[in-house]
Write a protein that binds this DNA or RNA. Structure first.
Lengths: 182, 182
DNA sequence: TCCTTTTATGCAATTAGTTGCATCTTTATA
DNA sequence: TATAAAGATGCAACTAATTGCATAAAAGGA
């Protein structure tokens, strides 16, 4: 479970409120560890109780906005956790199950719907990553931290491209196997 | 949630008991939808209650072994589900969070441990997939169903190779960024 | 024959994440 | 100045999966 450490990382990059975190998650760390604002608020409470962050009320802001920042104990904890190793996350992909089901049922069961839907999603996501690449990591010298962030982005780019290749390949195979369907 | 449909698929390929399913999951569908025997037994109960499978006591076997087989209603349900589309599963990878944390903390925090650990795991998994490829899908004509199963395996092969490439690239970058560490 | 091991099935507690809703505060608008 | 909208925080119920343990029946060995 890495949500607490994802939050510590994000707050270390830039102290902010729970809502801000939720928004930033949507376009950076959240690509690799999605979280809703509900989860984030609950977790921030735990982090503060553990003495890893502290919060101060932000005057002149909307609602009851609180600003969170990482304490030394939190930074220590993050360092400890970074040096840990664990197994790759188990992968669960319904589309692979669908493909195998199509094989078991005999072709023509309609897995193309899912393949086409995902193809569209992966193309959108790839375009988003390419925009970020163009905007933040192209045409200038990168600091060490930026090189690492770019590396992470490259993982996203490679993954999306691989998914796109796979969907296209699968659709081509299905086309070849059931020429009467189209 | 695709466990019920993964079970229907596997039972359609070959009727068997819950324990057999658990074992088969370990080396086929389970690569893309892992499940423990506890989950499987509970789900089989639901499938039977829904009238999608039926079970018969297997005489002359150990324990209280029951053999499950898919009923027509179950096959209908599987067909219906195969034609559905849904979003790609959200990806959650602690190692990416670690890399970003390393960037925020300044290099030297020790993310190499996780990279090396995963590199080993992905190499093992790749070797396993390559064995299956060699044994089941090489040097002969493949039926339509087999071509689909091979396609799924190829996704696994590509994914593992991509992960390996990424770990190697990340380790090389870290090496370059902190030459004093090694 | 008793006792241990193996095979097979299953329950219960916990954890992490999702979804839907509730509340409070400020800002904009009619 | 009411009132609505938007911003910010949070609770509660539910779901899916993990982990640890319990039970039952047959096989094999002493």
């Amino acid at each position: 479970m890495s949500l607490p450490h994802a939050l510590l990382t994000s707050l270390l990059e830039q102290p902010c409120s729970g809502m801000d975190l939720a928004r930033r998650f949507g376009r950076s760390i959240g690509f690799f560890w999605p979280a809703t604002h509900q989860q984030i608020y609950k977790e921030l409470g735990k982090l503060e109780a553990a003495g890893w962050v502290r919060s101060t009320a932000e005057e002149g802001a909307r609602g009851r906005k609180r600003c969170y920042e990482v304490l030394p104990a939190g930074e220590q904890e993050l360092k400890r956790w970074v040096a840990e190793a664990d197994d790759p996350p188990p992968l669960r992909d319904a589309m692979m199950v669908r493909l195998r089901a199509e094989a078991a049922l005999g072709t023509g069961a309609g897995v193309e719907n899912d393949l086409l839907h995902r193809l569209a999603r992966h193309r959108t996501q790839l375009a988003l990553y390419e925009d970020i690449e163009q905007r933040d990591f192209t045409g200038r010298e990168l600091s060490a931290a930026e090189q690492l962030q770019y590396l992470i982005l490259q993982s996203g780019l490679a993954t999306e491209r691989e998914h796109i290749r796979f969907c296209e390949k699968a659709l081509a195979l299905l086309e070849a196997l059931e020429p009467a369907e189209s």
